[in-house]
Amino acid sequence: MAKHEIIPCERCGAPIECKANAYTKCQCSAVQLNLNEVQYISEHYESCLCAKCLFELQQEYRDLVSA
């Protein structure tokens, strides 16, 4: 049984174990986002995202600013 809530990723729907109360152990902490990337993502999504989607959105943002 999971200690934390299982929620769907807002972007892809994949189940993720939310560890908001233990952020350093959460899968999303594997993605190092700068302030601009966080702002870009938060403009499009309000809830938790899986690490895969965070990496993809980080790349999307970097592609936009380098174009």
Rank of each mutant, 00 (worst) to 15 (best):
M1D: 02
A2M: 03
A2T: 05
K3I: 02
K3W: 04
E5K: 14
E5D: 11
I6C: 04
I6S: 08
I6L: 09
I7D: 01
I7A: 02
P8E: 08
P8R: 05
C9M: 09
C9K: 01
E10S: 12
E10M: 10
E10D: 05
R11P: 02
C12T: 13
G13T: 09
G13I: 04
G13W: 04
G13R: 00
A14G: 03
A14P: 02
P15V: 06
I16G: 02
E17F: 00
C18G: 03
K19G: 08
K19Q: 11
N21G: 11
N21Q: 15
A22Q: 09
A22S: 14
Y23V: 06
T24S: 05
T24K: 10
T24C: 02
K25D: 03
C26R: 11
C26S: 04
C26M: 03
C26H: 01
Q27T: 11
Q27F: 01
Q27D: 07
Q27N: 07
C28A: 09
C28G: 01
S29L: 02
S29Q: 05
A30E: 09
V31D: 06
V31R: 14
Q32V: 00
L33N: 04
L33M: 09
L33H: 07
L33P: 00
N34E: 15
N34V: 13
L35H: 05
L35K: 15
N36E: 15
N36D: 15
N36V: 01
E37V: 12
E37M: 11
V38T: 01
V38K: 08
Q39N: 13
Q39A: 15
I41V: 12
I41S: 09
S42H: 04
E43P: 08
E43W: 04
E43M: 11
E43V: 03
Y45I: 07
Y45M: 10
Y45N: 12
C48Y: 02
L49K: 03
L49R: 08
L49V: 03
L49I: 10
L49N: 07
C50T: 13
C50E: 10
C50W: 05
A51L: 01
A51Y: 09
A51M: 08
A51C: 04
K52H: 08
K52L: 10
C53S: 04
C53D: 02
L54V: 11
L54N: 13
L54W: 13
L57T: 03
L57V: 01
Q58V: 07
Q58I: 02
Q59W: 07
Q59S: 11
E60D: 13
E60T: 12
E60V: 00
E60N: 12
E60F: 09
Y61M: 10
Y61S: 11
R62P: 03
R62Y: 11
R62Q: 15
D63L: 14
D63W: 14
L64I: 06
L64H: 14
L64S: 12
V65M: 08
V65L: 12
V65I: 15
S66F: 07
S66T: 15
S66D: 04
S66A: 14
A67K: 15
A67T: 15
